[in-house]
Nucleic acid binder design. Structure first.
Lengths: 258, 258
DNA sequence: AAAATAGTGTCTTTTAGACAGTATCGG
DNA sequence: CCGATACTGTCTAAAAGACACTATTTT
């Protein structure tokens, strides 16, 4: 084959290359606002941000210092954007071993004052205990969870306001159109706990009304009863526990729901 | 602000930069196999590929010469991946002014023998007439439409087999879960034409049976009757025409379909 | 017994699926 | 009037929504 010849004559200088290739990560979780005994939870959707420190790890002034930002940073050679996202998350916040998903590329010229810098945006959806060890490190002076209803009022670095806004709509859609609600719940959960998760992104009556939702959960093909298992953490009356079944969800707009 | 200081001390050489940043485009269309008079169509899902020419535009041997590949190429400075995709598509195939969507990033080390080359994969879904002027140019010696059921048997360049496979599942999902079927149909269409489009990706009875689907199309909230308009292009009996309504589709797995 | 959450009973209305039967036209 | 496509009629079963009512527990 002629690839070797072609490679020899390939002139890398002919193309301008990016000045940087980065990853950013939007980590979402849901917190129970007030967890009283025998009460179903009231939940709120949160996003984890870092505050960019004044100096970088080598003592030089940092870009966008002091502003709130998504964790993230430069992709290393021989590393994919995905791996870099995991590494940066670990290095800046101490959060590790969570599943990330890519949802967008941000490469608008001018989005970063340092030059032509391309960012891969990722999101993650995790239960709070995955974030319990969070701790600001490296370039980050703080790590904090913000309610998505308020996060856009902060002074955000680079074009992160746009990235965060996009991430929030992806999460809303994902929560209703896939079974990721699972990630915000214990392995086994009550109808009212699932309901509380969904109510962070919708207020439709079919979900908001207890009787309707308690019945509906039994007919959802991707949820099964944990037979014989009950809990009293949400009410005095023991409540049935459910769990998610591992399956592909049929979401066709032309087919009936089965 | 201290961004100027930070910029001054920012050392670009500290990070290895990618050797290239490219875009690839998977353009899909649907062809009517045999279009007889008074017959509903039988359709097939196709993808447009180019054959990489032996020499590049400057007369040097080309990478992966002779293999079939997705149209695409290097992103120019001051251009987004999206714009680059449009430009490359125009330059290599003559196809222009179609809507592209990003669906993945391919950056696995080793995917391209020229080095660390990151590719943004895009797809497009267009009616055939948008491709009627297609013509091989630049690096491409041929442009051809392949049935998705056969395309993976070809000798494909780089990691395009993987990219194409991913693109096909994205299209299947999109066709059933969104209203993009619209793009494969004339503005006004019959139930059997929409049916033919959907049958390229499913064979569910609710869609395959005429009576069931003819009735269902009237209850779909995102499709309306073209009142009083009929055609005889699919049968001797004049057939009702329909059109898509512009609306967001509710796809929640927890809600009823309305 | 009161209060609170978790359900079930029951009714009404819609929807889905199956399949037989009717309608319309060109040739 | 045959053949082919496009429907409509009708029945049955299941699902969805509303809302009253019952069940279980702690304090």
């Amino acid at each position: 084959m002629s690839n070797e010849q072609a490679l020899k004559q390939y002139d890398a200088a002919k193309y301008r290359t990016p000045d940087g290739y980065t990853s950013d990560i939007a980590v979402f979780t849901i917190l129970s606002e007030k967890a009283e005994a025998f009460k179903p939870p009231v939940m709120d959707l949160k996003i984890m941000l870092i505050q960019r420190s004044m100096m970088d790890s080598e003592g030089r002034p940092n870009m966008e210092a002091g502003k709130w930002a998504l964790p993230g940073g430069f992709v290393d050679p021989e590393e994919s954007a995905y791996q870099s996202a995991q590494r940066e998350l670990r290095e800046e916040t101490g959060v590790d071993h969570i599943h990330l998903e890519h949802f967008g590329v941000y490469d608008t010229p001018g989005r970063d004052p340092r030059g032509w810098i391309i960012s891969n945006a990722h999101y993650a959806i995790v239960p709070e205990h995955e974030l319990s060890h969070r701790q600001a490190r490296d370039d980050a002076s703080e790590v904090e969870l913000f309610s998505v209803s308020e996060v856009l009022e902060l002074d955000l670095a680079f074009d992160h306001a746009k990235i965060i806004q996009d991430a929030i709509s992806v999460i809303r859609k994902k929560l209703l159109e896939t079974t990721v609600a699972k990630a915000f719940l214990p392995e086994e959960f009550t109808y009212s706990e699932l309901q509380a998760v969904l109510l962070t992104v919708t207020n439709d009556s079919a979900i908001a009304l207890d009787a309707a939702f308690a019945r509906k959960i039994k007919s959802l093909p991707f949820i099964e009863e944990a037979e014989g298992k009950k809990t009293t953490r949400t009410s005095k009356k023991p409540t049935q526990l459910y769990r998610f079944v591992n399956m592909e969800v049929n979401n066709s707009i032309y087919h009936a729901k089965k």
